[in-house]
Design a protein around this nucleic acid. Structure first.
Lengths: 329, 329
DNA sequence: TTGAAAGCGCTAACAT
DNA sequence: ATGTTAGCGCTTTCAA
């Protein structure tokens, strides 16, 4: 693979490989300017590229951090990665992306693979809230920070959106418009603490206003036809749909358009928008934007601290979301 | 890091580490079922995780492939990664994502980092079309496949969308609606062959129909206000805007809405849509969808072949795009 | 069918 | 300011 080794550089520069190693690791303190320049020239000349596998073997630092997301094609993950990448790039670290597939088994395989690669740390959007499935990760002794979803008990530091607060704001805005019935469209709420919090926030506001709330759980965003029954059940009461993530929000709008149900005239719509298109939709959508890139930066900073050996509070850090009320309500 | 090594497993199982290594690499051909079972039990018992850095050092296979995209937060990249990830997962490979930042220097640093990590191969969406800046990659001898953009000369196999064909279809659809002036909104066309092809396809159709075409190049999708002057210059001629990528398409629609310019009544709009929201926009947009997930699969398959030592045609493979004509024209 | 031993490219004492 | 040396955890001949 690598054409030249540290030995080749050492020979060509007429120094020992220890000196070259010092050069590579930026320990110039007690190195003559002459050898420093010489080594630099030789490296450029040969096009030498150091082998991190070898250095990781010795130094226990791979300069790689693992990121396990639920679904790489989700735009939320995209911005998350962007945020993480901005932080790690300045640290010369690379990010190893693994797709957990929202599936505990696939996720476990992915995490073990990352451990095998000796990542310096892991950022994890866990597929399930039960901490017992992650004990092996804790035992591995690798720095871990959770993102977007909590574990019970927490086990690791965690960065999320302020879901309860944003959910409440959105719910209040919806109820002010006079809806008499609420339909929450979500993936199974007991599989992710955050979904549950969003649902709970909505439910709390509805209860306060004495408005009925129905939970419609779907496994797959491709089929939200269950909305039909939920709307029928509401009879003459005017309904608003609350989608707990961007995929479902998009799916709901698509379905409403196909069914030729006017929004917000016949049915209201609001939800979480990670895709930044809510403003451009027809009609413009009332949404919460979570600012996932910021979340990514925050989580990466915490991980870097852990890797540097600093203490990090094992608790939840909330990044404030933005709530945009628009015509869909 | 890893708590146990192959030595610990060997001792606990009462065999040599060579035997454990054979087990780990699935070479069971001439291994007694007893030892095989014994090793399996010990590994499970200890929770042993192999160290890929060490194995990579010896075997020259890191089971990592590098992916360099122009911008990780672009939805195109997202689906690309999804497609790649589906292929690599079945091969037990991990993907190292690097953000090239659409900047040759940052990209070069990213690629060198990937080489240092001894990736088995690289998938690259190059920031610039000039092959000379990538000679060092060619020299490194690592398998490389290009995606989305070509190099001149090509140097590596490449997978893209069929841009000329889809651009022509979109252009023809636009001109059939009777527009008298075309504005192409693009990032600098000479920095990416594919953008240039899209522009050229449009230009060719316009030339055939004797319709004037104006190229508006922007550096940053956050500022598309140059559209104002372009529209003014058209005077009374009815204009259609063609955005050469999803970000600009979104930016254009946002700008038109802010300026309260009715689409398609006053100005037509069409372009490339990697975000899958064209259908839901107001108005629904006439777009080309490139199918980036398919592109990701194709490019990953080619890379895996190269890694496996097979020959791959150093030429362009085109994945057909879908053209959707909708109300925005 | 299994083991012994050399070595992959690098780092980090310890010398000098 | 620089060199010597002993590994890091694994794979892979070669031998048994």
């Amino acid at each position: 693979m690598a054409k030249y080794t540290i030995n080749d550089v050492a020979k060509a520069a007429g120094v020992s490989k220890a000196t070259v190693s010092r050069y590579l690791n930026g320990r110039f303190e007690r190195m003559s300017l002459a050898t420093r320049r010489k080594i630099k020239a030789v490296i450029a000349d040969l096009g030498y590229v150091p082998n991190y596998n070898a250095s990781a073997l010795k130094s226990k630092r791979s300069h790689q951090i693992g990121v396990v997301v639920g679904d790489v094609s989700n735009v939320y993950s995209t911005f998350l990665i962007k945020g993480i990448s901005g932080v790690t790039r300045t640290r010369q670290d690379q990010i190893l992306i693994a797709d957990g597939g929202e599936d505990p088994q696939q996720e476990t395989v992915a995490i073990k693979n990352l451990l095998s690669q000796n990542v310096d740390g892991i950022i994890l959007q866990p597929a399930r809230p039960d901490a017992s499935g992650y004990q092996f990760l804790k035992d591995a002794g690798v720095p871990v920070v959770l993102v977007d979803r909590l574990l019970r008990p927490l086990l690791f530091p965690c960065v999320t959106s302020n879901d309860t607060a944003s959910g409440k704001l959105l719910a209040q805005a919806a109820l002010e418009k006079g809806y008499q019935n609420v339909i929450v469209l979500s993936h199974p709420v007991d599989q992710a603490t955050v979904r549950y919090e969003r649902y709970r926030a909505f439910a709390a506001v509805c209860r306060g206003a004495n408005i009925p709330i129905n939970l419609l759980e779907v496994e797959d965003a491709d089929d939200v036809s269950g909305l039909r029954a939920a709307l029928d059940a509401a009879q003459s009461m005017k309904s608003v749909i609350f989608a707990t993530n961007g995929i479902l929000l998009m799916a709901a709008l698509r379905w409403l358009q196909q069914q030729q149900i006017a929004v917000p005239k016949q049915v209201g719509l609001c939800g979480y928008d990670d895709w930044n298109w809510g403003e451009l939709a027809n009609p413009p959508l009332a949404v919460v934007n979570q600012n996932p890139e910021k979340i990514g930066r925050e989580v990466a900073l915490r991980l870097e601290q852990l890797i540097a050996g600093k203490e990090v509070f094992v608790g939840r850090t909330e990044v404030p979301a933005e709530v945009h009320i628009r015509e869909s309500l």
